[in-house]
Write a protein that binds this DNA or RNA. Structure first.
Lengths: 118, 118
DNA sequence: CCGTATCCCCGGGGATACTG
DNA sequence: CAGTATCCCCGGGGATACGG
């Protein structure tokens, strides 16, 4: 009994930590939107993402993309066109967020219905 | 064809908006952790959550709880004990985040394996 | 086209102390 | 116990301009 309680607590601590790990990667005003954009189109260029994610500045897009690349969620490819273009795509690891994004989308729709109204 | 393209774009815009709606509610350093805590225990008091969510201050906990209540994710109940205690629990709407939290937990575990190491 | 460099500001959030 | 009230600071993030 006492033992079970301890396992319960430990298991809980682990889960909390895991959730935090996820949020650390996904936090920031734009991350999820950027991933969504790339995910939706499979491959997407800097300027395209910039248009998709309404309101984001070059500075922030660049910064967020770097972090996502650092966390191995996306892959950056320079295309030797003239002028140079850069393509971003999800890695397998990044693609594994698809379920979460879908759920967030669905939940957002429900939330709007219920709370935001209209 | 042209028409299909337009539908595609429109659908995409909608999904982006929905994701943003979700993130607007869930953003902030502590929200998901707080929800996780309440979700895991079903009912949870202020001081308990304060212990669960390591590092959070009274000020922030209070603020985040208010926002969650405003967005109808949690329900606040004052118990007429001596001294007064306050109980928080998820609403149906809040509980509908359970899937997302589970996915985030699972993803966090994978991410730690893959990137953070150990 | 794809960023970087600067400058600047606001508010998220920490620390601490205090009340019903 | 469950918050408020203050004070304060840092860095997230906007705007603009510039470089390869």
């Amino acid at each position: 009994m006492e033992c079970k309680r301890e396992n319960f607590e430990q298991e809980y601590k682990r889960e909390m930590m895991a959730v935090q790990d996820s949020m650390d990667v996904l936090n920031g005003k734009w991350k999820i939107s950027i991933i969504s954009s790339i995910c939706y189109y499979n491959k997407r260029r800097f300027s395209d993402i910039s248009k998709d994610v309404v309101g984001i500045s070059n500075r922030m897009l660049s910064k967020e993309l770097k972090e996502l690349e650092f966390n191995q969620l996306i892959k950056r490819t320079v295309l030797e066109t003239q002028p140079i273009t850069v393509q971003y795509e999800l890695t397998d690891h990044g693609r594994s967020l698809q379920t979460i994004i879908k759920n967030l989308t669905a939940w957002g729709v429900e939330h709007r219905k219920k709370i935001i109204g209209n």
